[in-house]
């Protein structure tokens, strides 16, 4: 069988997707560490052994993300906006028109045309506010795994405010809120609202017509999607493997 490999060397995590035809055979992730190429190679071997396949069966490797040029032996380097668009479009069954990608270090909002091409896009400025970094910090300070964020966020009762201008300040704010005895659930919910406000600020007049999809690592916790919904006043769909849409898009854009 011919496998296509998509590698997304992101700022916080390296994601790998092995695709058979257009079906995702295996997907895996590892934290970014110096020597990204070696980490990516290891992740790829892990995937192949999981599928019981050999290097020879890989028909093509595409790399994307900030570190795409670091993975030298890739057949093609694709910029992550194009691959994100392709991945989201295919995984959403061709219905995605607006894709909000909350990455580790940046925030992207893409507008797609009917064939999945990028018509327009917006990216955040030189500032990490409203990106994945926010959640990682919160996880560390509240020593709660990212996985439970969605559940905890639902049972929050009280409305708390965290500023959305600077991620570094947000950290000290969270510490002071904890000191004041504010419940973890409320802080997590405030965190989601702050990111949602930041995203809607960037979206600006970009009217999210058509179906809106959210992807990128932080999208895994459902809380962000719901916070975004009441901020952007429109229905937000989340792909089932949001963290891997970019890698998947890279693999699919290798063509047949």
């Amino acid at each position: 069988m011919a496998f296509k490999v998509g590698l997304d060397l992101g700022s916080t995590a390296i994601k790998a997707v092995i695709v058979d035809g257009d079906r995702v055979a295996w997907q895996g992730t590892r934290a970014t560490a110096p020597g990204q190429e070696a980490v990516a190679e290891g992740l790829l071997d892990e995937g192949l052994s999981a599928l019981g396949a050999r290097r020879g069966e890989i028909s093509g490797i595409a790399s994307t993300g900030y570190g795409k040029k670091l993975y030298a032996s890739a057949d093609r380097h694709i910029d992550e906006i194009t691959s994100n668009a392709a991945g989201a479009f295919i995984l959403s069954g061709g219905s995605a028109r607006t894709v909000i990608n909350v990455g580790g270090q940046d925030l992207k909002i893409l507008t797609l045309d009917d064939s999945g091409g990028v018509v327009d896009f917006k990216m955040n400025d030189k500032c990490a506010a409203g990106t994945g970094r926010f959640f990682e910090l919160a996880a560390r300070i509240l020593d709660t795994p990212l996985g439970d964020f969605a559940k905890l966020c639902l049972d929050s009762e009280e409305e708390v405010e965290i500023n959305s201008t600077c991620v570094v300040f947000a950290e000290s704010e969270m510490v002071s809120l904890l000191a004041r005895g504010v419940k973890k659930e409320d802080i997590i919910r405030a965190l989601h609202c702050s990111v949602a406000r930041r995203v809607s600020g960037l979206a600006g007049r970009l009217s999210p017509d058509g179906r809106v999809y959210l992807d990128g690592g932080p999208a895994q916790n459902g809380g962000l999607a719901s916070a975004l919904e009441d901020e952007l006043m429109t229905e937000i769909n989340v792909l089932e493997a949001p963290q891997f849409t970019v890698a998947y898009g890279a693999a699919m854009s290798l063509g047949a």
Partner: peptide, 28 residues
Amino acid sequence: LKFLRLETDYAAEDSQNLRTRIEAFRGT
């Protein structure tokens, strides 16, 4: 007309971020 807003300063470190945005813009 397509439109790309690039915010930067004199530091050379952010050239990677700019490159991503420019290449994507180039695509559109």
